[in-house]
Write a protein that binds this DNA or RNA. Sequence first.
DNA 1: CGAAAAACCTGGCAGC
DNA 2: TGCTGCCAGGTTTTTC
Length: 269
Amino acid sequence: MPELPEVETTLQAIKKFKNQNLNDVKIYNRNLRWKVNKNLEKKSRNKTLKNLSRRAKYIIFELDDAFLILHLGMSGSLRITKKEDNYFLKHDHIEFIFDKEKIVYNDPRRFGSLHITNNLETHRLINNLGPEPLSRNFSGSYLYEISRKSNTNIKTFIMNQKHVVGIGNIYASETLYLAKINPLKTSHELTEEECKKITHASKKILKSAIKVGGTTLKDFYSADGSPGYFKIKLNVYGRDGQPCRKCKKDIKKINLNQRATYFCSKCQI
DNA sequence: CGAAAAACCTGGCAGC
DNA sequence: TGCTGCCAGGTTTTTC
């Protein structure tokens, strides 16, 4: 479920564990997107959590001599409970146990993943990722340059994590609405000016979503246990048949790359 | 080769 | 109520 803002919100909620001792990792179901390495517990047990960060939609735990790479997949979430709490919710798979509290990883669909590595930069999940959308590297000229030779539609293009990370299905539609670009337009058709609009729009939306704590959807809980009633105002996603907020024309829903795509056919050229 | 489709899973909901 | 089919925030793997 989580796109970049949701992952970022989750990260902020668990930042308080920085510099604490990771007493133990307990894994109750190793069958996630990939089978969790059988030595992971042994290698991460009783280490200092030196830092917590995010790269793309991955949450990175920096330990004394290794990195844990956690992805929440489509339906994963983290919650914080007291160390002595011994209840389980359905689909609780992993516990990261600290001195007084623990972080519990819950994921109904098990599309998420957990890896351990000594070298983060060269890890296969990390080494092919595009720039962070909120960094200066994700500029109009960059997008223009990489989009020249591609024949795919721009919506699919910006969801490709090799091109830019963190933009998922919701924010892809929302970004293109704000940029006034039709999602069906092929990427090489875009002018540099349009590329600039897209990068600006994506940054604007991601920032405001982070500000309010991520879009609230079915399975996402903020990790500090707050209910998550915050929500950014979505302009197109899930609004098919409803009037465009600008021109009142009905929002359309189509399928691109097997994903629901929403747009206003009048505002988005 | 790049692009499209299938695959990995479970749960919720609409429709019958 | 209960069954069936479809849909869901992601990303890799397989097929065309």
